[in-house]
Design a protein around this nucleic acid. Structure first.
Lengths: 204, 204
DNA sequence: GCTTTACCTGAGTGATCGATCAATATAAAG
DNA sequence: CTTTATATTGATCGATCACTCAGGTAAAGC
């Protein structure tokens, strides 16, 4: 009965995600978005409502993708804990991938936005909370697998882990050699491995 | 021979620092600055050249103050290593202070700015490098005091420490209870203390 | 082919951006 | 008090900001 849309919504979102991740919310203008999505203002506003609406959808897509990648990575490990440590170690190679930014988009957003863009800031915050929740399930799984001392608080461990990842990825934005980032990642992975029960048994 | 300035340059810089630290570079407009400094555009440009010039001077002031506070804190400790661990633990109370932001201004800038504002980004990067250098001197002092295994690389330790602090302070921006931030800080302090030789001796 | 209905276009909105400068004000020097 | 040098003011600059909407376009249903 009517005309169909020229643009694939997911493709447009992905392009917006890349742009926002690289430049941040404020530094990204509608002109930039128009060019990246090859869409005119009217179409953009019809599809996403506002710049902030588009940004929030990009945030959600980012978080969903990140979580999915993490789950896919962990699936190739028998042990939850060694999956996590391998993940941390893998973050040491962030620079080799061609990402819009080494730093986490959620963290960039959390640090950039203030009460003025409360909706977007809160969205980033909530998505970080759900990432923390997933880390918690990993540590619980590790405890159930007997890899981790059950007296340790999995929620507390997940917060510490999230803070470390935040730090590692922020550090990776510095102008240092790739090997330096890898060394920090390795050190973090080591201290995570140190929590392992099997590790403790070999030490004794 | 001529008129003297109404405004104290250091006071103005301090106010600009607080503003930029809280809102970031892009979200801070000249209007905001005019109001905060109680200065008109002409005076601001006469004193600081440009918005970015003012921002860079604010960055330098921030780094200088941060370093000075850290040195002052460490001076009250006999042991370099326990000074550092106490510092980390103290960061757990970030929320209680009335700071413009929990996150480090240098990190916020590093994550917000791109090649468009290369000068400011590079300045933030350099200042972070000098912070790292100071941490290195602390670890070297700890080694010379016999607190730290001399086979450990003090440069590597300082980078790991900086990444942890970056992570802790970014995490503190999340909407969580103050006790949660303190717990992360305590955990980080513990793993730093675990490097101590004396700690190891009591374990054996 | 015609009608209907949605989509797309892009010039244009007022507001705000960072920055400039001629006019004015004021403190120090003579 | 006059002169001189500098500081301050605030109207104003062109550019860009996020955003709107009237008009043109094209696909689906008949």
């Amino acid at each position: 009965m009517a005309r169909t849309s020229n643009h694939n919504r997911q493709d447009s979102l992905e392009k917006a995600l890349q742009l926002f991740w690289r430049k941040g919310f404020h530094a990204t203008s509608l002109k930039d978005i128009e060019k990246a999505l090859d869409m005119r203002p009217g179409s953009i506003y019809a599809a996403f409502g506002s710049k902030e609406g588009l940004f929030q959808e990009a945030l959600e897509r980012y978080a969903q993708q990140s979580l999915q990648e993490l789950k896919h990575h962990l699936a190739s490990f028998d042990s939850p804990l060694s999956g996590l440590t391998a993940f941390i170690r893998g973050l040491g190679g962030l620079r080799d991938q061609d990402l819009p930014s080494c730093a986490c988009m959620l963290v960039k957003s959390l640090l950039e936005l203030s009460y003025q863009e409360q909706g977007s800031r809160q969205k980033a915050d909530n998505l970080l909370a759900s990432m923390e929740a997933f880390f918690t399930t990993c540590f619980i799984a590790a405890q159930e697998a007997g890899e981790l001392d059950t007296t340790l608080d999995p929620v507390r461990l997940s917060r510490r882990l999230q803070a470390e990842i935040m730090g590692l990825r922020a550090f990776a934005e510095r102008d240092v050699e790739n090997e330096v980032v890898q060394a920090v990642a390795d050190d973090m992975a080591l201290s995570l491995e140190a929590l392992s029960n099997t590790q403790l048994k070999t030490q004794r």
